Computed example of a mutant assay.
Amino acid sequence: MSISAISLQNTSLVQKMDEMKEPVIKHNNFNGASPIDFSKALVSVLDGVNTQQAVATDKINAVGLGKSDDMIGAVVAAQKASLSFSALMQVRNKLLSGFDEIMKMPI
């Protein structure tokens, strides 16, 4: 394979990538997208985790009181709540370690 064949192949790959990029940019509207408010996103995530915890608690209580026989649904809801809480804690730990790194930077 010669150098000119490699450069032609690279050029065609770049053109194909550009062609594939255009519909994605138009679909996602990156240029006109409004900025995301961090505090609203954080509150939304916290509300979602809290809702999952409440649903799991309700299902477990219903099974415990004999109001429901959906033991599998209760266990699945509890696992979902546990996973979402664990993920939230990992994100919190990453944010705190990043904040600590910023605070350690010399001015």
Rank of each mutant, 00 (worst) to 15 (best):
M1F: 07
M1Q: 11
A5Q: 12
L8V: 00
L8T: 04
L8K: 06
Q9R: 15
Q9M: 07
Q9I: 08
N10T: 06
N10P: 00
N10V: 10
T11S: 10
T11M: 12
S12W: 09
L13Q: 06
V14E: 04
Q15W: 13
Q15P: 02
Q15Y: 13
K16E: 06
K16P: 00
D18Y: 13
E19N: 03
M20P: 00
M20Y: 11
K21A: 10
P23N: 09
P23K: 10
H27E: 09
N28Q: 12
N29C: 05
N31M: 14
N31C: 04
A33V: 08
A33L: 15
S34V: 12
I36S: 01
I36N: 05
D37W: 02
D37V: 13
F38Q: 06
F38R: 10
F38P: 13
S39I: 09
S39W: 14
K40W: 02
A41E: 13
A41Q: 15
A41Y: 12
V43Q: 15
S44M: 15
S44D: 14
V45F: 11
D47K: 14
G48C: 08
G48M: 11
T51W: 04
T51L: 12
T51C: 01
T51M: 09
A54N: 07
V55R: 02
T57N: 10
K59L: 12
N61Q: 13
A62N: 04
A62K: 09
V63K: 02
G64W: 04
L65N: 12
L65K: 11
L65T: 04
L65I: 07
G66P: 01
K67M: 11
D70S: 06
M71Q: 06
G73Y: 08
A74P: 00
A81S: 15
A81P: 00
L83D: 11
S84R: 09
S84Q: 10
S84E: 14
S86L: 14
S86T: 03
A87P: 00
L88P: 01
L88V: 04
L88D: 03
M89H: 09
Q90M: 12
R92Y: 14
N93I: 08
K94G: 09
K94P: 05
L96Q: 14
L96S: 01
L96M: 14
S97V: 13
G98P: 05
F99G: 00
E101Y: 05
I102C: 06
M105Y: 10
M105I: 07
P106I: 02
P106Q: 13
P106F: 10
